[in-house]
């Protein structure tokens, strides 16, 4: 694979991830506003109820859908790094396979902290 080809695929990957994420967040947002019509919100005091990925099952449907959209967004750069890792491996560029693997491990560590 050439570097030019890699650029094009990475560009498309990023665009698709952001578009999909925005669509899911917007759908969740519409549902959230329709469902929460007369309620109030207060973000003045930090409570931090949405903690980690298991919030997906605890949150009400609309907020859970928004969170899924946000997770797609967070996964987009991660997918880009995974793709780069494969591309460098195909180019047999050992130094950059190492570099990319370190970045991927750092990202997976961060996502791992949100797992529980």
């Amino acid at each position: 694979m050439t570097d030019d080809r890699m650029d094009t695929i990475i560009g498309n990957l990023l665009r698709a991830g952001v578009a999909l994420s925005a669509a899911v967040v917007a759908a969740g947002g519409a549902w959230y506003l329709a469902a929460g019509g007369s309620g109030t919100v207060d973000y003045r005091r930090f409570r931090g109820e949405t903690r980690g990925l298991h919030s997906l099952v605890e949150l009400p449907g609309p907020q859970a859908l928004i969170l899924i959209g946000l997770l797609i967004l967070i996964a987009t750069p991660v997918a880009r790094v995974v793709f780069s890792l494969i591309a460098f491996a195909l180019e047999r560029d050992r130094a950059y396979v190492m570099v990319t693997a370190i970045v991927l491990i750092a990202l997976l560590y961060s996502i791992g902290t949100a797992w529980w």
Binding site: Y32, E49, T50, Q63
Partner: peptide, 24 residues
């Protein structure tokens, strides 16, 4: 994007990301 994604997991685990606010 990659830099921000590296903090995003930790932000999520600490409850800093509130879906109702992050959406708009």
């Amino acid at each position: 994007g990659v830099t921000a994604a590296a903090s995003a997991g930790i932000y999520l685990s600490r409850g800093y990301i509130a879906p109702g606010l992050a959406m708009p």
